[in-house]
């Protein structure tokens, strides 16, 4: 009954929220003891959570637009309010709003290659991009998955510092980490540059270094 009520409440909340901009919805599989109303209420109190509802063993979560909710925060709430329940993080389906946060511990340019190689080994990864980066090797990325894929298939949550649900990066192209820096009018490729240099009798300046 509680689940039905929960679903009803969630539907109502979603309907209400449709009057405002809707945020991403994610389904989180819960194992162990079913979530109590108290635990559900605590999850709803998390910053960034617009609505939460339990349907059998799946916690449906709507994240407010331009907000973010981290999986680790949900786990923390469960640990406190529902110690018999656990979030099956590896079973979470990767969606457009699933953002992976990792602490590479090295500079972006050093991390990018190995990360790309790792992701390339996952057949369901059709594309990936870094969406944000922070100090000291911390970055966030997202992937485009072909078909349904779970976080477990990507290597499990243990590989990541955290997983964030947010629409904050929606519509945002990947930051161009190889930005055509500082207003230099880079030529499109080496052949074009060499032709122009010959024609204009200007010297070439070549930068083999990425990102500087």
């Amino acid at each position: 009954m509680r689940n039905i009520m929960g679903s009803f409440l969630f539907s109502t909340l979603l309907a209400v929220s449709l009057t405002a901009a809707s945020g991403p919805v994610v389904e989180l599989p819960i194992a162990g003891v079913p979530l109590s109303d108290e635990a559900l209420a605590a999850i709803e109190q998390l910053p960034g959570v617009r609505a939460a509802a339990l349907d059998r063993e799946v916690l449906s979560l709507e994240v407010a637009p331009d907000s973010e909710v981290s999986v680790s925060d949900i786990v923390a709430v469960l640990t406190e309010h529902a110690p018999g329940s656990r979030l099956e993080r590896d079973g979470v389906t990767i969606g457009a709003h699933t953002i992976f946060q990792m602490n590479a511990g090295v500079c972006f340019f050093c991390a990018e290659g190995p990360l790309g190689q790792t992701l390339a080994r996952r057949s369901f990864v059709s594309d990936w991009s870094v969406v944000d980066y922070y100090a000291k090797g911390r970055l966030r990325f997202r992937i485009d998955a072909d078909g349904k894929a779970t976080i477990g298939a990507l290597g499990g949550t243990g590989a990541f510092e955290d997983i964030i649900i947010t629409d904050r990066y929606e519509g945002l192209g990947a930051p161009n980490l190889y930005w055509a820096t500082g207003g230099v009018a880079w030529r499109a490729n080496e052949a074009i540059a060499r032709q122009e240099a010959s024609r204009s009798q200007k010297p070439l300046i070549l930068f083999p270094t990425a990102g500087t």
Binding site: A180, V184, E190, I205
Partner: peptide
């Protein structure tokens, strides 16, 4: 660079 050189970024 922009005035007196032809700049290109080599893919190394």
């Amino acid at each position: 660079i922009n005035r007196y050189f032809v700049p290109v970024h080599l893919n190394n």
